[in-house]
Design a protein around this nucleic acid. Structure first.
Ligand SMILES: [Mn+2]
Ligand SMILES: [Mn+2]
Ligand SMILES: [Mn+2]
Ligand SMILES: [Mn+2]
Lengths: 220, 220
DNA sequence: TATTTAATTTAGATATACCTAAAAATAAAC
DNA sequence: GTTTATTTTTAGGTATATCTAAATTAAATA
């Protein structure tokens, strides 16, 4: 079953709101996520249900079907492969990705994606540290802890973020905090939870508790 | 002025039909090129005229304005840069490009295009040997002759094609005739205009007059 | 439980991008 | 220069994807 770009965006939203949750997704939740009106959501839910992508009972909320989950992972895979390309090859910054990958994720060509995957060296994680589904929708995962959880003199490698907001990503770019960078905890302030870091074995950087809780690291 | 993908496709069509021609483009011509109906073309011409992209007087045909030409070259630049990427980096074949570049040409981001251009090494020609407009719409050009015009024992480098049809491009792929390949004329048959070539200094290949007239080379 | 509030759906518009069929204008043929 | 044929436009319709306002259903509260 083939989907339009709009349908793909809704499906992706329904899937992502649903991961790690028991109940169904509400119309208002989706409207908020997709920056649209509840009435538009209702219209689209009917279409996606008719196409077998979601289970939808009116007034009762919505969840993806097996077919819908497969499709959502396919779209996610396309998006993330493009994101790796944009960062690794074209050197775009974190906060410049969203707008572009929102478009590129809909360019649907198995051959293109297979070649891009190969060209990128079969990456397992996107530039935000999230796993990239393979052709079958399977994902690797590795232990990620908030930077805040690192203790004094412990070090780790930055592998992702919890917050994809433009303001946060801009801050990180400016602070020189990127994927793959090594950090060592020079100081932890009990009073406010802030930290001082040694970045890349050379530069010192203070960060607040809030920032530290939104950066994910792989501890050494 | 921002254009939708559909508007961009029409504008590109109007521009490309117009290059190297005195008169205007007709509604039916455009409909044939874009595989759509004349009534749809008329609708779109009104929209593009209102946006200042074309000069359109009803029943009198259509041509691009200065703004329209600029825009058409911008779209063409995006398309061709993607085509270079698909061939040079992802190793796609000629006949696999059209469908993808038809979509990718509409992803409009100056930053993305600037970075892609840089990443590709500022290419001046697309995989078909046609010049790529720069940010200002200017194009290089180099002398291209049909392979048919090469004489006995003359050699040249393949730099493009005159025919972008899927059947022709598939034939070339199969025959191992690619951009950048060196050819030497081993024989020219007077009777039917066919040729025998030495490809890449190693392989012999017969081609018909029709094929030879649709391959463009830079003669040494 | 009855009433009020909030969430959701329906009804009915608008805009884009197509289409078919009919009308109008232009071009070609006689 | 009429008549005929072709081209082009208009009229009106469909499908997608939005919206606002009103109606309906479900949830919360008194
Ligand atoms: Mn999207
Ligand atoms: Mn296109
Ligand atoms: Mn409706
Ligand atoms: Mn109309």
């Amino acid at each position: 079953m083939n989907l339009t770009s709009a349908e793909e965006n809704y499906l992706k939203g329904i899937y992502s709101l649903g991961v790690g949750r028991n109940g169904d997704i509400s119309t208002n939740e989706l409207a908020a996520l997709l920056q649209t009106k509840p009435a538009s959501v209702t219209d689209m839910l009917k279409k996606l249900a008719k196409k077998g992508m979601i289970s939808y009972v009116k007034y009762q909320g919505v969840s993806v079907t097996t077919a819908g989950k497969k499709k959502a992972l396919e779209i996610t895979r396309r998006r993330k492969l493009w994101e790796v390309f944009l960062v690794e090859k074209l050197r775009l910054q974190w906060d410049e990705l969203t707008e572009l990958s929102d478009e590129l994720e809909h360019v649907s060509s198995p051959l293109l994606m297979q070649r891009l995957d190969e060209y990128l060296g079969y990456p397992k994680f996107d530039p935000f540290g999230d796993p990239i589904p393979n052709e079958l929708g399977e994902m690797s995962d590795h232990p990620r802890v908030p930077l805040l959880d690192l203790s004094f003199e412990q070090s780790g490698k930055i592998i992702g973020v919890n917050d994809n907001s433009s303001s946060f990503l801009k801050y990180l770019d400016k602070a020189g905090i990127f994927i793959g960078v090594k950090v060592l905890v020079l100081d932890k302030v009990d009073f406010d939870g802030s930290m001082e870091l040694l970045i890349d074995n050379k530069r010192r950087q203070f960060i607040s508790k809030e920032v530290a809780s939104n950066i994910l690291v792989m501890a050494y």
